[in-house]
Amino acid sequence: MGEALFTGWDFSYIEGSGRCASSLLPWSYGSKAITLMRQCRSLLDMGTGGGEFLSLLQPFPSKVCATEGYAPNVAIAKAKLEPLGVNVAQISDDHHLPFHDEQFDLVLNRHESYAPQEVKRILKTGGIFFTQQVGCLDAQDLNKALHKPVNDAYINWDLKFAVTELQGEGFHIVKAEEAFTTLRFYDIGAVLYYLKAIPWQIPNFSVHDCEEELYVIYKQIKQSGGFDVKQHRFLIEAKVK
């Protein structure tokens, strides 16, 4: 049940089939992204995955680029996006993006790491950085249920930290919101699929090491109909002065 191949950045195997579901955020990243795109001539989508989300935001402005750091996704993104006129670049370092200074009117970033100073470098004066991020408290209920420590690499990653960091680089914060929602898993296979797709949640996760804890989750799903974890998201729209 948890062995299906995960490709691109597409959770439809468990989300589209109704095996897990998230409660609604108080904002729509996609709707706002489309509005911002209609006002720009050059766009960069950071961490495009397999290009699934970006491809839904058409029509595009005259110049569109995308980056992806996970090598297996690059070919998938190129196959999906390049026929649409998108230039896809593979990157390995957030601090060195393969673009000229002041190249873009808009940089989109959905759940991808970034270096504020490098984002500012490639944005034009008056350009917009629009990002939705996964906060440090995301899905910690999984760590607790499986008796695994929280990944401390992201321990301070929240709205306050990100806003302060961007302001320190000279960005003007136009909009900043934070929200906590619920992700419900309806079968244990969906839990396993999620953990394998998000390896940083529990590094080196192994079914064998967590058999007893997974069985407890399995019994809870059978008894109550689902297993809930808290999600942590925040949204920032920032403008280059």
Rank of each mutant, 00 (worst) to 15 (best):
K32G: 11
C136V: 00
F99P: 06
F53M: 09
C40N: 07
H208K: 13
K222R: 14
Q90P: 09
A115P: 02
E118P: 05
V86N: 04
R110K: 14
G47S: 10
V88H: 05
R41G: 11
T35A: 13
G168V: 00
L43T: 05
F53S: 09
T7I: 14
L25N: 14
G69C: 07
R110C: 12
T131A: 10
F161H: 15
F234R: 03
G16F: 06
V240Q: 00
G16Q: 06
K63H: 14
Y70F: 15
V163G: 08
T48M: 01
Y154K: 05
L25P: 10
Y13A: 12
D209K: 12
F104H: 09
E82Q: 14
R110P: 11
S23T: 15
A4S: 13
I236Y: 01
Y154C: 03
L36Q: 01
G126S: 04
S224A: 13
N73L: 09
K239P: 00
A176E: 11
D152V: 08
T67V: 12
A139R: 14
L24I: 08
H147N: 07
K148M: 03
I76N: 01
V229N: 01
G226L: 07
Q132S: 08
A139C: 14
V150I: 14
E82W: 00
A77I: 07
R38M: 08
E178G: 12
C136F: 02
C136E: 04
E118F: 03
D105H: 00
P149T: 00
Y70P: 05
I122Q: 03
P72N: 08
